[in-house]
Nucleic acid binder design. Structure first.
Lengths: 117, 117
DNA sequence: CGGTATCCGGCGGGATACTG
DNA sequence: CAGTATCCCGCCGGATACCG
């Protein structure tokens, strides 16, 4: 069981369960990808158009990593032209509340304080 | 107000409020540092001993970044030998629930699945 | 349409030595 | 005790060109 009062030592960064989760969702574009897939299943090109700044190869690697971590599911349809869809897995859907918390925190603690500048 | 149903485009990664929060807490050792400081105010050496794997320079930079982001407060006491204490700020304390969520998610979705290997 | 392959640069993180 | 200074390196992310 998780001991949230753990006062022990952390030899390796990954001994920290918080860091373990951030490893999964913390790629540069992963939060955006997950957020877009929370809203809807999306095709490859659709994702790419929704994130204009991202390089093709980078988007692909982030998608592969998310798939390897069981967060998203890739479905390729054997058609011509090919069609590939990306959807959140059940595990991925359990991230929804966390994503909302992270988004909410930044709007109240980062964006707000920038107004004061 | 935050539009959690935002279906717009993200030109830059940082347009994403989720990524903005991860930028703050996402350094390699920042989750551990924040977690330790949630439990208690700690001195520099005390932190260093609690995280044996971290290099001095790296820990210092992570602490400086956390301080710059308003998450922690550094207090130096003009004594000999010097004493420096690090504590969570009020803003930092608002991260507590998020940290617990992140820790809990990894224990149920990462550590559990590793057992199956 | 949905990808690989190749090459590259920067930055975060690290080991070691030195200092107020 | 609590830091800097210096040098180093691997990896993530990026631009461009090519492929099934």
């Amino acid at each position: 069981m998780l001991n949230l009062e753990n006062k022990g030592k952390y030899i390796k960064a990954n001994d920290c369960p918080i860091a373990a989760t951030i490893d999964v969702i913390g790629g540069k574009w992963k939060p955006i990808i997950i957020w877009l897939l929370i809203q809807d299943v999306k095709r490859f090109g659709e994702l790419h158009r929704s994130i204009p700044g991202i390089a093709l190869k980078v988007m692909n690697r982030q998608l592969k990593e998310l798939e390897a971590d069981g967060i998203i599911i890739r479905t390729a349809y054997p058609e011509v032209p090919p069609r590939v869809e990306y959807a959140l897995s059940e595990k991925g859907k359990t991230l929804t509340d966390i994503m909302k918390s992270l988004a909410l925190w930044s709007t109240t603690n980062i964006l707000e304080s920038e107004k004061a500048d």
